Amino acid sequence: IPVEGRRFEVRYAMGAGPTPPSPLAIIRNHQQAASTIGGTTQYEDQRYTTLKVAKDAKEVWVQVDTAWGRGYVLTIVEKQAMVQEVVASAELFQSGLKATGHVEVPGIYFDTGKSELKAESDAALAEIAKLLKADPALKVYVVGHTDNVASLDLNTKLSQARADAVVQALVAKQGIAAARLAGRGVGPLAPVASNDAEEGRAKNRRVELVKQ
């Protein structure tokens, strides 16, 4: 399975003494360890197993090679995260609102389960402000969305808190009148991708502008 990213190799050598564990035992031990943290087995034969662990937007692949004398080799690859190609801009927001009445805001960041805006969000907030200052009559809903991890009630409250945080930042830091903004949180109720995999869940965790 070809995977690109940062690669490590760890070799475990077993000295003379008790009979070493069988290749199957080594494979099963690593599969169980991966499973306890949400990992899955991608491949297995008598010599190898390949494991994948996806957590907190990171993806780690591990190959266990048991055919190395009295020992085994772990090859670990941290898959490189995709670079976000869409950049927040007032022009992007204006075009989206005109075409569909709503538009996603790339570049808004929160820690997992938190509603405090991260400093990296400042550039996107400035572009929202630029949009609103260019059209003084425009009013928008700021809508928070989540994935479906955790309960509906918790995610709805989290998405509302995140939407409110964006509104508060636009008012306090960018000088936008509060009357032109309204925060709404819809939790996981409007996904744009399947929540069955982390890639889809990441797309569903977003903030949108909706024209009032």
Rank of each mutant, 00 (worst) to 15 (best):
R47S: 04
T50K: 06
Y43K: 08
A123E: 13
G5V: 08
L152K: 12
V210H: 15
Q31H: 00
A99Y: 02
V83C: 01
V149D: 10
E91C: 02
A169R: 07
A119N: 09
R6D: 11
K139I: 00
A67P: 02
G96S: 03
R201I: 03
Y43G: 07
N195C: 11
E104W: 01
D147Q: 07
T112I: 14
T50S: 13
K173D: 15
A67V: 02
K58T: 14
I76G: 13
F8C: 07
P188D: 09
A126N: 10
I27G: 10
V167P: 07
F110L: 08
V77C: 12
I26N: 11
G187H: 02
Q31W: 00
I1D: 13
A90F: 05
E127R: 13
P136M: 04
P21D: 11
G101W: 01
D65C: 11
I37P: 00
L131H: 09
Q160S: 14
A126H: 04
M82Y: 01
Q31L: 09
E9Y: 07
W68F: 10
A13Q: 14
I76C: 11
L117C: 11
M82V: 06
T66A: 03
G71D: 02
V73L: 13
Q46I: 08
L97S: 08
T36F: 07
K114W: 07
Q32F: 12
H102G: 00
I37K: 01
G71F: 04
D147F: 11
N148K: 10
K139W: 09
K79T: 07
F8P: 02
V62M: 14
K130E: 06
Q94D: 10
L125Y: 08
H30T: 02
A134S: 15
E208Q: 04
